[in-house]
Design a protein around this nucleic acid. Structure first.
Length: 196
DNA sequence: CACCCGATTATCT
DNA sequence: GATAATCGGGTGT
């Protein structure tokens, strides 16, 4: 069951939290790669100095201002791509949830080839790692993830509120007061760094 | 396990 | 010209 556009048409923070346990599906060369989301971060707009959208729309972030339920993929640090899902309610102009880590489910051998490593706990435990494992690049920017295609998101396991940890977001200097990083308690596949 | 640092380039000021 | 929603390798504890 693919998540509908309605799922993404809510406060970015709620969507980021509710994405835990959902499954990302990536189809490459006819093969299916998938993994359960175990860690996310919410990025809003005018109220969030840590967000790309804080200073308004630019060529890079324009997808964050567009239709919900689409992917926002950007390139950073000269090496890596990061995958976000556009999500927001009508009270704000832009917003997206960064997918920080997934637990590999299907197509693990192909992921190992893309990552050139074998350790399953290191395969998709970080935003730059999981895009490499799923062969996601700028070509997958602005893809509609509410429809079956090369990239979409389905229902997965229900995660109880008591299993969700909220923490400060990683890799930013502004907006650290906001606890908008969400991860599944005791999951082995989250990215290691924890700043509370 | 914790901290430090270089790589590498699109994007913004 | 500076910075960055990162990673992996290196060193030290």
């Amino acid at each position: 069951m693919i998540l509908s556009q309605e799922f993404y048409h809510r406060d970015t923070i709620d969507v980021a939290k509710d994405l835990l346990g959902k499954v990302i599906v990536r189809v490459v060369r006819g093969k299916i790669l998938s993994g359960m989301i175990v860690e996310t971060e919410a990025y809003r707009s005018k109220d969030d100095p840590g967000s790309h959208a804080y200073r308004g729309m630019t060529e890079r972030n324009r997808v964050m201002f567009g239709e919900v339920g689409r992917s926002y993929v950007y390139f950073t640090y000269g090496n890596h791509y990061c995958l976000n899902l556009v999500a927001k309610d009508d009270s704000t102009a832009a917003g997206a949830a960064l997918i920080r880590a997934i637990e590999p489910l299907q197509g693990i051998e192909l992921m190992r080839k893309f990552r050139k490593i074998s350790d399953i706990y290191n395969l998709t435990s970080g935003p730059g790692k999981l895009t490499k494992a799923l062969d996601i690049t700028k070509d997958q920017n602005a893809v509609d993830v509410t429809k079956k295609g090369e990239l979409y998101v389905t229902e997965g396991r229900r995660i109880d509120e008591s299993q969700v940890i909220a923490a400060s977001r990683i890799g930013i200097n502004l907006g650290l007061d906001k606890k908008w990083r969400f991860l599944i308690k005791d999951n082995q596949f989250v990215s290691k760094k924890v700043r509370l």
